[in-house]
C-alpha cells in the first residue's frame, strides 16, 4: 500500500509541473489551451530521443522545455495574429504535434531502459527509483513555484494577469494583450513539455499517445487543488495545485486498486472534472435551502 502511495506521490509531483502549466492558461489567461495534449508528448519525445542520441539527460530535458515553448508559440500566433479562436488554435497545434512527435520519435514509442536519466544521479546516492523521482520532483516543483510566484508579481507578470482578467482594460492601460497571451502560452507549454520529459524518464519510455486526455487530468488537478486546498492568495494557489495533482494521482491509484479497470480511467477522470466544474450550479441550488434552515431571510 505504501508503495502505491509513494508511486502516486512521485507521479503526482511530475504531473504537478504540467498542472501549473495548465493553470497559467486556464485560470490566469482564461483560455482552455488544448495544445498541451501535444506538448506533453512532445516533451517526452524530445527528451527520450535526445537521451537515446547520447545527450546529457538534463540538457535533453531542457531541450524538451524549449520544444514545448515553440509549441506554445505556434498556438499563440494562430490565436492572436491569425485571429483563430483559442480553442481551435489549441486543437490545431495538438493535431499537428501528433505528426511532429511521430517524426521526433521515429516510431510510436521509444524505450529508455538502462539509459541514464535525470534520476540516475539520485539513484547513485543510493535512493531507489521512486524516492529518486520524489526528490527531483520536489526540487523541480518547489523551484517552479518560487519562479512562478516571482514572475507573476513582476510588471510583465501583472500585465499577463490583467490580460486574462480583463483584456479591454489591459489594452486601455497600454498592455499589448496579444503579446501577453503568446508569452503565457509559451511559458505554459514549456512547463507542460518539461513535465512530459520528466514523466517519460521516470516510466522509462516515451509514447506518442501519452498526451491523450492530459488536459482533462490537468484540469482535474487544478480543480481538486482549488476545492480541497484553497485559493486564498497566489502562493497558496500554487501549493494547492501541487497538492491537487498529487491527490488526483492518489485517487486514481486507489480506485484502480479497488478494482476499476484501467480502461475506464479516462471516463472516470472526465466525470470527476464534469462534476467539479458543475459544483457552482449545484451550490446555487443548495444555498437557498441552507439559508432557510438557518432561519435567515
Amino acid at each position: 500500500m505504501l508503495q502505491i502511495i509513494l508511486g502516486a506521490v512521485s507521479l503526482g509531483l511530475l504531473w504537478a509541473v504540467m498542472t501549473m502549466g495548465v493553470y497559467i492558461t486556464y485560470r490566469i489567461l482564461n483560455i482552455a489551451d488544448l495544445s498541451v495534449e501535444g506538448s506533453i508528448a512532445m516533451g517526452a519525445a524530445i527528451g527520450a530521443q535526445c537521451i537515446m542520441r547520447g545527450m546529457n539527460p538534463y540538457a535533453a530535458t531542457a531541450m524538451a522545455f524549449v520544444g514545448g515553448m515553440l509549441a506554445g508559440l505556434a498556438t499563440g500566433i494562430l490565436h492572436t495574429r491569425l485571429k483563430i479562436p483559442a480553442l481551435l488554435s489549441g486543437i490545431l497545434t495538438m493535431i499537428a504535434l501528433y505528426s511532429v512527435n511521430l517524426r521526433i520519435l521515429g516510431k510510436a514509442n521509444i524505450s529508455l531502459l538502462r539509459m541514464d536519466t535525470v534520476y540516475t544521479v539520485f539513484e547513485n546516492f543510493g535512493l531507489n527509483k521512486s524516492s529518486a523521482v520524489i526528490t527531483l520532483g520536489l526540487l523541480c516543483v518547489l523551484g517552479l513555484v518560487g519562479l512562478l510566484y516571482w514572475f507573476f508579481g513582476t510588471e510583465i507578470g501583472c500585465a499577463i494577469r490583467a490580460t486574462g482578467n480583463n483584456p479591454q482594460m489591459a489594452r486601455a492601460q497600454g498592455i499589448d494583450t496579444g503579446n501577453m497571451i503568446i508569452l503565457g502560452l509559451v511559458i505554459s507549454n514549456g512547463m507542460v513539455a518539461l513535465s512530459g520529459a520528466l514523466i517519460a524518464q521516470s516510466q522509462s519510455f516515451a509514447d506518442v499517445q501519452m498526451g491523450i486526455g492530459s488536459i482533462v487530468i490537468g484540469l482535474a488537478s487544478v480543480i481538486i487543488g482549488e476545492v480541497l486546498f484553497g485559493k486564498r492568495n497566489f502562493f497558496n494557489r500554487l501549493i494547492a495545485l501541487v497538492l491537487g495533482a498529487i491527490t488526483y494521482r492518489i485517487i486514481i491509484a486507489l480506485v484502480l486498486r479497488m478494482g476499476m479497470p484501467a480502461s475506464d480511467l479516462k471516463l472516470f477522470t472526465a466525470m470527476t472534472v464534469a462534476i467539479a466544474l458543475s459544483l457552482p450550479v449545484f451550490r446555487s441550488y443548495l444555498k437557498p435551502l441552507q439559508r432557510s434552515k438557518k432561519g435567515e431571510m
Partner: peptide, 29 residues
C-alpha cells in the same frame, strides 16, 4: 466593470495604470 481588473487588488490595478505607456520589465510589479 470594464475599466478595472476585478481579480486584482486596488493597488495592483493602480500599478498597471502607473506603467501605462512605459516599457514593462521584470521589476517587481
Amino acid at each position: 466593470m470594464m475599466g478595472t481588473a476585478s481579480n486584482m487588488g486596488i493597488e495592483e490595478n493602480l500599478a498597471l495604470a502607473y506603467r501605462r505607456g512605459k516599457r514593462r520589465s521584470l521589476k517587481w510589479g
